[in-house]
Design a protein around this nucleic acid. Structure first.
Lengths: 174, 174
DNA sequence: TCGAGCATGTAAATCGTTACATGATTCA
DNA sequence: TGAATCATGTAACGATTTACATGCTCGA
C-alpha cells in the first residue's frame, strides 16, 4: 500500500520523502497514516524496483529528490485501474488519485462499487429488520441499546458511502 | 486489540473459538475482521494471562469452551472505560460493547469524543473553504475533481459520525 | 456418500509502528 | 541562541494475514 501511495504522490512531481509525508498528511491524512519508518524503506524499494529515480541535491540540505519513471507510472495506473474493494479504506485512497485515471475505467469501477455498496446496504437492512423485531418481542431493547446503535451506524455509514458515490458519478461536486 | 474483542465476545457467555469468530462476523463484521490465525493464539495468551479459562468437551466434537474470569472481566472493563480515540475504528468496537459499561463513564467518553469530532469537523471545514476558493481562482476544478470529492467525503464522514454520536447520547435510537 | 459446515491449530510472510539516532537550517 | 521545522534513516517490535494442515459431523 505505502509504495502505491508514495508513487501516487510523486505523480504530481519530483519531491523529497519529507515532502511526500507532508502532502500525504494534508490530503488523505484523515484516512491514511504514513510514518517515516515505512516511507523511507518504501522509497528504497521503489528505486530498486525501477519505479522511481533518486537524485541527490548538493544545496545546503542533504535532501534527496524522487521522480517517477514511466515504469512506475504504469505500475501505479495498473493498481489504480483495479476494481475498488471495500476493505481497509483502500478504496478512498484510490479515489483520491482518480484524476489520473481514464474516464471509462473510472466510471466502470465507481459504478460496480456503488452496486456492491447497495447490495451490502440491502443485506444490512434485512438483518436489522429481523433483529429489531426480535428485540421488540423480547423487550430487551434497553439492554442492547449500544449493540443496536452500532448496527444503526453500519447502516448510516453505507448509506452515506452510497450517496457520496452516486454524487461523484453524477458529477454533483462541481 | 484481538484479545479485547475476544474477551468482549466472551462476556455474553461461555463459547468456543469457532463461535467467537462467527458471532464477531455477525455483529461487528462490517468494521472488524477476525481470522483464526490470530484468534487461536490470542485465546492461548488469554489463558496464560488468567483472563479466561479453558474447558475441554468430551462430547463427539473436540471443542474447547472458554469462560471469562473475574480478572478478565476487570481487564476488559478497564479497556472499555478508556477515552474513545478516533483512529482505526477501535472506537466503534468499544461502543458495541458499551452496554457493559457504567452510565457515567459512558456519558463522559461519548461526550468527549463528540467534542473532538466537532473540532475536527471545524478544522476540515476551514481547510475546505480555503482550498475551494483557491481552486475557483485557478480554474482547475475539473482537473482536481476527485481530490476535491475526497475532501467532501471526509467532511460527510465526520458529519455523519457527529450526528450518530449525538443521537446515541440523546437516546434517540429507542 | 459427499459436501458444507464445525472445529483447531501452526509457520511464514507481510506490513507497519515506535523508538532511537543524527544533524542542518531558519526565524524570532 | 534556542526552538521549530527540515531532513534522513535504522532496528526492534508488534499485530495480523495467508497458506497450509488435519479431522469430525450432519443432513440431503
Amino acid at each position: 500500500m505505502i509504495e502505491l501511495v508514495t508513487l501516487g504522490m510523486l505523480m504530481q512531481g519530483r519531491m523529497s520523502g519529507y515532502d511526500i509525508k507532508k502532502i500525504t498528511e494534508q490530503t488523505i491524512g484523515t484516512f491514511y497514516k504514513m510514518s517515516y519508518g515505512s516511507l523511507y524503506p518504501a522509497l528504497k524499494r521503489l528505486v530498486t524496483e525501477g519505479f522511481v529515480t533518486e537524485e541527490e541535491t548538493n544545496d545546503s540540505k542533504n535532501k534527496k529528490l524522487y521522480t517517477v519513471t514511466n515504469k512506475g507510472r504504469q505500475h501505479f495506473l495498473e493498481w489504480l485501474s483495479e476494481p475498488l474493494k471495500s476493505n481497509k479504506r483502500e478504496y478512498m485512497v484510490k479515489v483520491f488519485f482518480y484524476d489520473y485515471l481514464d474516464e471509462e475505467t473510472k466510471r466502470r469501477n465507481l459504478h460496480d462499487y456503488q452496486r456492491s455498496i447497495e447490495r451490502t446496504l440491502n443485506q444490512l437492512k434485512a438483518v436489522q429488520a429481523v433483529v429489531s423485531q426480535e428485540l421488540d418481542q423480547l423487550d430487551k431493547k434497553d439492554q442492547y441499546y449500544y449493540r443496536v446503535s452500532t448496527m444503526h451506524y453500519g447502516l448510516k455509514f453505507f448509506q452515506m458511502e452510497n450517496e457520496w458515490i452516486k454524487q461523484i458519478i453524477n458529477k454533483e461536486n462541481f
